[in-house]
Design a protein around this nucleic acid. Structure first.
Length: 480
RNA sequence: CGGGAUGUGGCGCAGCUGGUAGCGCGCAUGCUUUGGGAGCAUGAUGCCGCAGGUUCAAGUCCUGUCAUCCCGACCA
């Protein structure tokens, strides 16, 4: 029996082993391969194509908002990295160093950038002279290196791809507005493009970026109830400007310090897609970033006219602006169904001799496997409708999952009980603002503070930990 | 970085008290098939993760190392 043979045994079920399920998808959907260096993954064409769509959409948005792309060097001299105290203390433990060039020891070690604040600052110090030079709205797409101890594909690799925006502004107000604007860009990108609902908020001081005055982040809840920080935006005040001696002459000809921001998001978002939308059959891709939006599967391919018709339909869809692949390989139709489900293709179009005769085809949406028979006349519009339906279905399902796993708690005991009863998820609880309470909650319940959400609610008067008057509602969760 | 597990054809695994490496899937070729991972036939593919050591002899024993996974501490 086919059942005994378990032909479809590619992916470990989520319920059996979530981490293995995740890794299986990364490998079996052809997103990545491992390399010979720990934590450095090979992003394969299918995975990279997803990243390219993310890049294209974000880059367009950044440019609409006035940002310009630049490229900064890969290396940072040790002395430059050391200029801002908190920054270097935060990053030093995970920095990779180059100490030799060819056969010569370098007189000064070079750090492989873990982030580029220092490089941008050094440059800004040279080019910002007058209030007329502001704002500076720079962004770069690059990879950075952080020598992580525990690594996982997309979620935590030693080298990862990202974009980092670094901006300089005349006033604090303007810089803060930029910080929040970019956080909103990220939030909107996640919700409208990736179909991942996010919580926007501010990080607590203990979780702040090294050297930042305030760090804002978006947090998304994954299938296993853990939270993924999916994008961050930092406000630096003039701290780096002072450390790097960046000054400009304002309109009164006084020398003043500009105010700075930085913001970034990474290939980690691909991990977020996997863990938000994936299922036991594999990846489920948001249509907007899917390398293949519609896969056309000719059924009974050997019969005359089937391949021709499938190709014709594919051409029509392509002409309508849809990313299409028609699979004419000699695998069976069933094999192809499974294959493209594994790869998360949002819509499958089945076309066989009976369909052709009837002037119709079958459209199957990946996220819920619903089949619909549609007329070949106007198949373009039908496919677009389905892509829209996939997006909507994905977002609603992810939102419902988050709501089902968000718990309001008033004590550590309630937190423990809620997680025990309903599984890991977001805990919403009031906090007094003391780091000691943050630490204690983490020690007692396992959840750490994720963010202080912009959308505040007053669900209790007192801190969930110490019972003193509460300052904020905080989202807590186990985190990636 | 601490605790645990695992490295054997592309993938999944077997290989006992050391004795010249095997199975399933996949892959190649041919024929028959094709609406949910097709069948038969023939065939190819191994520095047993890597480096040392013990031994007449190492996939097997010992040491080290690298990688992957899990649990902690740290982090996008």
């Amino acid at each position: 029996m086919a059942q005994e043979k378990r032909l479809v045994e590619e992916i470990t079920p989520m319920a059996v082993d979530f981490a293995q399920w995740y890794t299986d998808i990364c490998k079996k959907a052809d997103l990545i391969d491992y390399s010979s260096v720990k934590g450095c993954m090979i992003i394969r064409p299918y995975g990279y194509a997803i990243w390219e769509h993310m890049q294209r959409i974000l880059d367009t948005r950044f440019k609409e908002l006035g940002h310009e792309n630049v490229y900064m060097p890969l290396f940072i001299p040790e002395s430059l990295l050391n200029k801002e105290k908190e920054h270097v203390e935060g990053f030093a433990p995970e920095v990779a160093w180059v100490t030799r060039g060819g056969s010569e020891e370098l007189t000064e070690p070079l750090c492989v950038r873990p982030t580029s604040e220092t490089l941008f600052c050094e440059h800004y110090a040279n080019i910002i002279r007058s209030w007329r030079d502001l704002p500076k709205l720079y962004n770069q797409w690059c990879s950075v290196v952080r020598w992580e101890k525990t690594t996982r594909p997309f979620l935590r690799s030693r080298e990862f791809l990202w974009q980092e925006g670094h901006t300089m502004h005349a006033t604090a107000e303007e810089a803060i507005a930029e910080t929040l604007q970019m956080l909103n860009v990220y939030a909107e990108f996640h919700e409208k493009v990736l179909a991942i609902p996010v919580v926007k908020g501010r990080k607590t001081d203990s979780d702040k970026f090294a050297g930042a005055e305030a760090t804002y982040a978006i947090e998304a809840l994954m299938h296993d109830g853990k939270s993924l920080q999916a994008g961050t935006s930092h406000y630096f005040g003039d701290g780096f400007a002072r450390a790097f001696d960046i000054q400009y002459a304002d309109k009164e000809n006084k020398l003043v310090y500009p105010h700075q921001t930085s913001w970034g998001c990474t290939t980690r978002m691909i991990g977020g897609i996997i863990m938000t939308h994936g299922d036991d059959s594999g990846l489920v891709l948001p249509p907007a970033v899917a390398p293949i939006q519609v896969v056309v599967i000719p059924v009974a391919m050997h019969k005359p006219g089937v391949v021709e018709k499938a190709t014709e339909i594919a051409d029509r869809l392509r002409a309508a602006g849809i990313r299409v692949k028609v699979d004419v390989s000699d695998n069976s139709a069933g094999w192809k169904y499974a294959e493209y489900e594994m790869k998360g293709v949002p819509v499958r179009l089945e076309l066989g001799p009976r369909d052709i005769e009837a002037g119709q085809c079958v459209l199957v949406t990946r996220h819920n496997r619903e089949k619909a028979v549609v007329s070949l006349d106007g198949v373009e519009a039908a496919a677009k409708e389905k892509l829209e339906a996939v997006y909507n279905g994905m977002f609603e399902r992810a939102l419902a999952n988050r709501q089902a796993h968000t718990y309001d708690c008033r004590s550590a005991e309630e937190i423990i009980a809620a997680l025990e009863a309903h599984g890991d998820g977001f805990v919403r609880a009031m906090w007094c603002g003391e780091e000691a309470c943050e630490d204690e909650i983490k020690a007692r319940t396992g959840v750490s503070s994720r963010c202080i959400p912009f959308e505040q609610e007053h669900i209790a008067d007192t801190c969930v930990c110490c019972g003193k008057p509460a300052l904020h509602l905080v989202y807590w969760a186990k985190a990636y």
